Amino acid sequence: MQNDHVGAVYELLDEAAQMIAKELQISYIEALAEAGEMYFLETTDQFSIPAEKAEPLKALLAKAEFNKYEHEWVRKAFQLAILKGLKDKSHPNRQMTPDTIGLFISYLVNKFTEGKKDMTILDPAAGTGNLLLTVLNQQSEQIAKSYGIEIDDVLLKIAYAQANLQEKEIELFHQDSLEPVFVDPVDAVICDLPVGFYPNDEGAKAYELKADEGHSFAHHLFIEQSVKHTKPGGYLFFMIPNHLFDSAQSDKLKRFFSEKVHLNALLQLPQSLFKDEAHAKSILVLQKQGDQTKPPKQMLLANLPSFANQPAMLEMMAKLDTWFQEEK
């Protein structure tokens, strides 16, 4: 039943995006952001389209009822439309965090921050906002304020359109996350780390984790920037490349971790989620050190089974629950 609703919302987004792309001569993904804006504002006046060409868009608007759609339907419909748009123009840094991983990260955020009220949360590589919105839709009661940073203006506009249609208050910043960020330290950071080299060698000099020579790893700098913008005792949930601790610059990273954070969990994601073993990832959970913090008695290490394997997943959840009880 839910798939029917998601499909209906997807059709509204897809039809509008196709029309807007054709009329404004822009890419599907750019048009999708404009379609989201149109449904939120409930008007086509922002487009410089002749009145007769705007009629089909007005007909779509007349049958859309975004205020009645569940937020998860809207998010999933956007996800389908974004995937369609990304197939047209594949871009290495325009990959979305898969849904199953987003939901699992939401579960981890919930477990590690249980009982905490009025939380603040930041995603420094927000992209289309999918991961952040997944977490917010799962625990909106707990989170008082959320922030997203994204350098790609098209992705940011989609995040903005999604947040509006899902009635989520997110403060979005269009900037390079590794430049100075004007966000107060938060209780939690979530991030699917952008993997690769940071081209701005001058900017990298501000970081402890800069490379001694050549380009620095962007994912290392993102970790440092995130820790800097987390409150003492706050948690960080990263999707990391599996080779994070084996790379040429990993010694500095290990030293940084021992001085700044407690390593709580390292959960390797199922290989089946990744086309190429070289791109496989894990979830790393850190806690920023503070006066009241202490490292876990035992770090949680696990290889997660396929999310489709329900018995194995239930067994894994039971193991995680046991770990949380023992650590408390």
Results as ranks from 00 to 15, higher is better:
residue 69 Y to F: 04
residue 70 E to R: 12
residue 70 E to W: 00
residue 70 E to M: 04
residue 70 E to T: 09
residue 71 H to Y: 01
residue 71 H to S: 15
residue 73 W to A: 13
residue 74 V to T: 14
residue 75 R to G: 04
residue 75 R to H: 06
residue 75 R to N: 10
residue 75 R to V: 09
residue 75 R to S: 05
residue 76 K to M: 12
residue 76 K to R: 15
residue 76 K to A: 13
residue 77 A to L: 07
residue 77 A to R: 04
residue 77 A to Q: 08
residue 77 A to Y: 03
residue 78 F to R: 03
residue 78 F to T: 02
residue 79 Q to N: 15
residue 79 Q to K: 03
residue 79 Q to W: 02
residue 79 Q to D: 13
residue 80 L to N: 12
residue 81 A to G: 09
residue 81 A to C: 10
residue 82 I to F: 06
residue 82 I to M: 12
residue 83 L to W: 01
residue 83 L to M: 11
residue 85 G to V: 03
residue 85 G to M: 07
residue 87 K to W: 00
residue 88 D to C: 01
residue 88 D to M: 11
residue 89 K to Q: 12
residue 90 S to V: 11
residue 90 S to F: 12
residue 90 S to R: 14
residue 91 H to D: 13
residue 91 H to W: 08
residue 91 H to L: 12
residue 91 H to I: 02
residue 92 P to N: 07
residue 92 P to Q: 08
residue 92 P to G: 03
residue 93 N to S: 11
residue 93 N to P: 00
residue 94 R to W: 09
residue 94 R to P: 00
residue 94 R to M: 12
residue 95 Q to M: 13
residue 96 M to Y: 01
residue 96 M to P: 01
residue 96 M to F: 07
residue 97 T to V: 10
residue 97 T to C: 09
residue 97 T to M: 06
residue 98 P to D: 00
residue 98 P to T: 04
residue 98 P to N: 07
residue 99 D to N: 12
residue 100 T to P: 03
residue 100 T to S: 14
residue 101 I to N: 04
residue 101 I to V: 15
residue 101 I to E: 02
residue 102 G to A: 03
residue 103 L to Y: 05
residue 103 L to I: 02
residue 104 F to A: 08
residue 105 I to E: 05
residue 105 I to R: 09
residue 105 I to L: 12
residue 106 S to K: 10
residue 106 S to L: 05
residue 106 S to F: 01
residue 106 S to Q: 09
residue 107 Y to K: 15
residue 108 L to K: 05
residue 108 L to S: 03
residue 109 V to G: 06
residue 109 V to I: 10
residue 109 V to D: 08
residue 110 N to W: 07
residue 110 N to E: 15
residue 111 K to E: 15
residue 112 F to P: 03
residue 112 F to W: 13
residue 112 F to T: 06
residue 113 T to P: 02
residue 113 T to Y: 03
residue 113 T to Q: 10
residue 113 T to M: 11
residue 114 E to V: 12
residue 115 G to P: 05
residue 115 G to D: 10
residue 115 G to I: 10
residue 116 K to G: 12
residue 116 K to N: 11
residue 116 K to Q: 15
residue 116 K to V: 13
residue 116 K to F: 02
residue 117 K to L: 10
residue 117 K to P: 00
residue 117 K to N: 14
residue 118 D to C: 04
residue 118 D to K: 14
residue 118 D to L: 07
residue 119 M to V: 07
residue 119 M to T: 06
residue 119 M to N: 06
residue 120 T to L: 11
residue 120 T to A: 09
residue 121 I to F: 01
residue 121 I to N: 09
residue 122 L to E: 01
residue 122 L to H: 10
residue 123 D to S: 07
residue 123 D to A: 07
residue 124 P to R: 03
residue 124 P to S: 05
residue 125 A to S: 15
